[in-house]
Design a protein around this nucleic acid. Structure first.
Lengths: 208, 208
DNA sequence: ATCTGTGAAGCACTTCACAGCG
DNA sequence: CGCTGTGAAGTGCTTCACAGAT
């Protein structure tokens, strides 16, 4: 478990690590203790050499002629990705989409908690949704200085999105998950990743 | 507007075309008629040469020293991507996530219609949601032969996902949008694209 | 003068192939 | 003998740079 990650790590490598974490937790839940790059590759449809090279950026986790200890490798990757802690998130936009995000069951088991909810629409401010009370997005800065978060989730209309992301950046939120159909200029130092099902469908239609 | 798309087109190019469509429809809605690759590039944070090369795979849409006619280019790309028709979709899985997908307002304006809904859980079969009656996923093949679709949307638990995708493939559904947190072996000839917010969050945590 | 279209160069990611080690 | 770790080769995508058109 190297503290010094020396070389620049390709973005694609980082994107694959969570996949490795996912299959390793399945495997280490079972009795199987040792796993090879080929087995992982079969499960994920990734070339085994790719997996070995990806892992080599972070340390020497395997035993030659043997494979990887599933639990040990899992722990190492969890540590690398910072998944051994809770991540606090703020949702901006509690329209239909935002409420579905609030209700999504997949975040909490992975350590991602929505701890604040905001909206720009006056009618929605003050409403209780589950454990949260919706706050005025114009006071986002104030609220997040009291109760800081690591991640912003944006579910506002496209035209509002750049402003909301800028506001989040001002509050020191460096990671944003954007659900709105807006092209994004990520502010310097911030990471914005967008989830847009329509874009995905529109590119699949070409292939069909 | 070339009918013959000769060269193999990089997947990344296809993924960018919907972005071009989106900004072009914004632009051609306004009075601006001419647009340059630099203007498009500024809006999307894409290098202008990238845009020109992407477009060159499909034809000669620009005028040298001038730029592109926004409306003309939009039409061409809409035609290339097949967005000038309706796409019929079947949703499999009407749990909390599936119901949110059914309620999502973003599909219909872009020509994507959910025309069938299925579930594996007996308790949910027969329920009416909006215009649709949930059908038994075990009879998917039967229902889709009556009422064929172009796209499948999968929102079932991870363990069910491979089976559902295989079933859809049997019914001739070549494009699948998968919302479940499952690693997918796309059946030969089928295109599966996954939307998994947790994977995105987990890779952003490395950067933070 | 300006902006397109495109070979060629550059860069980044993937896969090969094999030395090294258990 | 089997599987890892990794330079080197291969592949594919992006950007440059400039001829060509208006």
């Amino acid at each position: 478990m190297e503290e010094h990650i020396t070389a620049r790590i390709p973005a694609r490598v980082i994107d694959r690590l969570p996949l490795y974490v996912r299959v390793l937790s399945q495997i280490s839940g079972s009795e199987r203790q040792v796993v090879t790059s080929s087995e992982l590759g079969d499960r994920l449809v990734i070339h085994p050499a790719q997996i070995r090279k990806d892992l080599s950026y972070f340390g020497h986790f395997g035993r030659q002629g043997h494979g990887y200890d599933a639990r040990e490798l899992l722990q190492a990757l969890v540590w690398v990705l910072g998944l051994d802690r809770q991540w606090r998130m703020a949702l901006v936009g509690v329209g239909q989409l935002g409420r579905a995000i609030l209700g999504y069951q997949g975040f909490v088991p992975e350590g991602f908690w929505i701890v604040e909810a905001f909206d720009l629409v006056a009618r929605r401010v003050g409403r209780r949704i589950g454990e949260l009370t919706v706050k005025d997005a114009r006071r986002l800065e104030e609220a997040l200085s009291q109760n800081p978060v690591d991640v912003g989730i944006v579910a506002v209309p496209a035209q509002e999105t750049p402003g909301v992301i800028a506001q989040l950046a001002t509050c020191g939120v460096e990671a944003v998950l954007n659900y709105s159909p807006a092209a994004i200029h990520a502010p310097p130092g911030a990471h914005v990743r967008s989830m847009d099902p329509v874009l995905v469908l529109q590119s699949m239609t070409f292939l069909t």
